[in-house]
């Protein structure tokens, strides 16, 4: 039974990964067809995977409602809105006026406003937390100030040299640092990928029996 539970998925991942890698190096028509087909199938399976998250949420919220836990009434609202959106989207399509109101006038402003909250917390952090305590933090703050003055048009109005200095921070120092980080991350991702393909890394299995 461990053949199906443990070995078969590892072999499938290995074969699929090797076919896609081999297709990049060699040009055999059969290999190209196999690689293209597997990639197309992966796109379709990915679309199914979103349902797992949705079902998980429905499962958890239903348990909260049945047990009458704290804030259970909000869970009722969530379930109603979820199925309402799904119903309008599937029956009426995404071009339906009610769907557009839900998307343009409820979901979009809620999402943007939640993300914009970080601007407020950054503002209070700028006053209370960003301290020039040592040389490294001084460097960080100097870079931040010059790049902010480069990004905002007012920097150029104050002194035309400010955006030039800010640009040097971004296109010189930060570009060098980023390149080193990216190459390091790429090397690490290749190593991690190889570990997955040879079956050394099994965290993607999920629950263990």
């Amino acid at each position: 039974m461990s053949l199906i539970r443990r070995d078969l998925p590892v072999w499938i991942a290995f074969l699929v990964g090797v076919i896609i890698l081999a297709d990049y190096v060699f040009t055999f028509p059969g290999l190209q067809v196999a690689s293209t087909t597997l990639t197309n199938w992966a796109v379709i399976v990915t679309a199914f995977s979103f349902g797992i998250g949705a079902l998980n949420i429905i499962q958890r919220q239903s348990k909260i409602i049945i047990r009458r836990d704290k804030y259970w009434i909000y869970s009722v609202v969530l379930i109603i809105i979820l199925f309402g959106t799904l119903g309008i989207g599937l029956v009426g399509s995404i071009n339906h006026p009610y769907y557009k109101i839900l998307f343009d006038n409820v979901m979009a402003p809620l999402n943007v406003t939640m993300s914009s909250m970080l601007a407020f917390f950054l503002a209070s952090a700028a006053f209370r937390v960003f301290r020039a305590k040592n040389f490294e933090s001084i460097l960080l703050l100097i870079a931040a100030v010059f790049v902010m003055l480069q990004n905002a048009p007012i920097g150029e109005l104050i002194w035309p040299g400010l955006p030039v200095i800010g640009d040097f921070f971004v296109t010189g120092f930060a570009a060098g640092g980023n390149r080193g980080i990216q190459i390091g991350a790429a090397i690490a991702s290749i190593g991690f990928g190889v570990r997955i393909l040879i079956g050394q890394e099994k965290r993607w299995f999920g629950r263990t029996e």
């Binding site: 199906i4 539970r5 443990r6 078969l8 998925p9 590892v10 499938i12 991942a13 290995f14 074969l15 699929v16 990964g17 090797v18 076919i19 896609i20 890698l21 990049y24 597997l38 990639t39 199938w41 992966a42 399976v45 990915t46 199914f48 995977s49 349902g51 797992i52 079902l55 499962q59 991702s189 290749i190 990928g193 190889v194 997955i196 393909l197 993607w204 299995f205 999920g206 629950r207 029996e209």
Partner: peptide, 30 residues
């Protein structure tokens, strides 16, 4: 994939996951 929610047949969820993981790793390494 929806065998993710099953206690007895959870391991079947790993088969489509293997397709996703293999594709992702192959494309990522490239």
């Amino acid at each position: 994939l929806y065998f993710y929610f099953s206690r007895s047949f959870y391991y079947l969820y790993r088969i489509p996951m293997a397709l996703l993981v293999g594709t992702g790793v192959g494309l990522g390494i490239r």
